[in-house]
Design a protein around this nucleic acid. Structure first.
Length: 211
DNA sequence: CGTTTTTGACCGGCGC
DNA sequence: GCGCCGGTCAAAAACG
């Protein structure tokens, strides 16, 4: 069942520290899921004990530039970070080998293979009126889906940078539409390219390491 | 006219 | 095996 999947996910936890080394452990406190459990299941995201709450400042400081932080923190009464958690990949375990395939079949196979690979994920909730938070990267929407038992659609985005396969998805919490859940998957292989402002490059670069 | 969004189709995984 | 569901594709539309 799903438990099985989650278990495997936890076992395949090779180098998940990338995301969280930016967040000192002493800043992490345990957090009541606050209805998040369902969401996590929907996201196919790992077990509750990978689930942490962080001070708002921690998230804000992890954004790519002061400008973005300001953007996040300022309007709408200040989006409040409610929770944050990560998960790692569940890896492909099946490897069929069949050579005589049509072109489209091969194409499909490649897609499937790619689909199997789950990059490390990490998601957080914020209180925000805008769905897509400006994190300094440029995203292209590639899908939208209505998920069961929710009135708000989930949107799927991919990083526009070549060779960068980072994805994120955005949805509003069914229980409280004022809250936005953003889930990142994968790691950028580049610096935040979008709208390079007057922030210190070192700052952006540093944070890029974690995003 | 290049890029992004929209949106229905399609696919695989999972439960029954 | 079938149907449901989430995630992705890709053609067409919209956008700047």
């Amino acid at each position: 069942m799903q438990n099985q999947g989650l278990f495997e996910e936890q076992q395949e936890m090779p180098t998940p520290m990338g995301f969280f080394s930016t967040f000192p452990p002493n800043n992490i406190t345990s957090c009541p899921p606050l209805g998040c459990h369902q969401s996590l299941k929907a996201f196919n995201i790992a077990a509750p004990h990978h689930h942490h709450a962080l001070p708002t400042e921690t998230l804000l400081s992890s954004l790519s530039s002061p400008k973005h932080r300001e953007h996040l923190a300022s309007d709408f009464g200040g989006p409040r970070l409610l929770s944050l958690q990560r998960s790692s990949a569940n890896l492909c375990k099946k490897n069929g080998v069949d050579d005589h395939l049509g072109v489209s079949a091969m194409k499909m196979k490649r897609i499937k293979a790619r689909r199997k690979v789950r990059e490390p994920r990490f998601c957080f909730k914020t209180m925000s009126e805008v769905d897509v938070l400006d994190d300094g990267y440029k995203w292209r929407k590639y899908g939208q889906k209505v998920v069961k038992n929710t009135q708000h659609p989930r949107s799927y985005y991919r990083c526009t940078q070549d060779n960068c396969r980072v994805k994120k998805r955005v949805e509003r919490l069914a229980e409280d539409p004022r809250m936005v859940i953003t889930t990142y998957e994968g790691r950028h292989v580049h610096s935040p390219s979008h709208d390079l402002d007057d922030s210190q490059p070192s700052d952006s670069q540093l944070n890029n390491f974690f995003w």
